[in-house]
Design a protein around this nucleic acid. Structure first.
Lengths: 204, 204
DNA sequence: AAAAAAGTTAATCAAATGATTAAATCAATC
DNA sequence: GATTGATTTAATCATTTGATTAACTTTTTT
């Protein structure tokens, strides 16, 4: 019978899934060996197939979970009818920064998924409905009614300012010669800066 | 003897290198099969090893070339003592947009390289000297002397606004429901927008 | 034109890799 | 506590994959 008490991530199945998450996000699907996952989990190789049927299926599970983490950070804020545009901007930056500080491999993993399998990403999350028709985009459209650029242009720049620093963090670290802690501090500073810049751009 | 007339990319060696560039940039090192490269090149599998010794060596060559394309777009502009800060901003955006419109796979390829092998990237290009001590950064530091944020923060946001749209282009296409041509037009519009926003941020 | 060098090909090798199996161990239900 | 079912293990399989080889062809040199 399966251990299932207080979900202490201590069942074999959970150990494997956690190991798979770690390795897949760090190295990508093709570079990941099932033996890497087994070793990282400290479990026998055959248990991967016993619990998850195949490498591909295990990856599918990790991918959907990770996409979920990415999207669920966005959707509720986007579709909250009770917050102002400025509040939404602050919350998006804050939520994503917290998520990526905790899980820095997510941005590049998602970008790679989007490029390898755009349909799966777009379908899975119904991004179109949840973003293009969100309250956020309605507010943006109103704000930019007389502007020279579209809400999409703002959105892309906004997301770029949030996500790019994490996807390029080893470069930042190299340029600044900073430790892991200093890098984190630098990235955290952007919680204040990015919203300020975003609002500035919107006023233009 | 090697054909070497007008460099029409028609020698076997060039065909293989072009095929390798195409496949490596699209799928990454681990997901690329040497047989993919041979098939894409329309040449015999053994010729890859005949001309390039190993898959790894061929990838090294492509990687260094691609890093070169990325860096050489930046360095000359950064270190030009005869242009203003605003002019540098315009040129960087323009040069990178042109490069990525032509070769859209570069951004994600570089980001992956940076994350898999930061040292090689930083060493190879002497990024630190060429960027941190560039004329551009001197101008930035002067401009931001009394600002609340550092040149690095600006630089990262600036690069994010330029690069992110290309790394996330399939998402943009999905959201807008746009054709390849429409996507290109959208990305080209940013040649005007991003410099305007960058200057705005600098004034703050 | 003969000899040598360069280029190309199909076949094959050895290692890596995802997956499976059958036996062994552990847990829980009667 | 014996039995049944779930879990774990080591060994093995079949395929894929990067690389090599040896024969063959084309090109260059003498």
């Amino acid at each position: 019978m399966k251990r299932n008490s207080i979900n202490s991530a201590s069942t074999t199945e959970e150990k494997i899934k956690n190991a798979a998450r770690e390795v897949f996000l760090k190295k990508g699907y093709a570079a990941t060996r099932t033996r890497d996952i087994a070793e990282t989990a400290g479990e026998n190789l055959a248990l991967i197939n016993y619990y998850f049927k195949s490498k591909e299926n295990l990856h599918r599970i990790i991918m959907l979970e990770t996409m979920g983490a990415f999207i669920n950070t966005m959707i509720p804020v986007f579709n909250n009818p009770d917050t102002s545009l400025d509040e939404k901007i602050e919350q998006i930056v804050s939520n994503y920064t917290d998520l990526f500080l905790d899980r820095p491999d997510i941005p590049l993993f998602i970008l790679n998924q989007i490029n390898q399998n755009a349909d799966k990403f777009l379908d899975h999350v119904q991004v179109k409905a949840n973003i293009m028709q969100s309250h956020f985009f309605v507010q943006l459209a109103k704000k930019l009614k007389n502007s020279t650029y579209s809400p999409m242009h703002f959105f892309i720049s906004f997301m770029g300012m949030i996500i790019f620093p994490f996807a390029a963090s080893p470069m930042i670290q190299g340029l600044r010669g900073s430790s892991d802690a200093e890098l984190k501090a630098f990235l955290k500073e952007r919680k204040e800066l990015v919203p300020a810049w975003a609002k500035l751009i919107l006023k233009a």
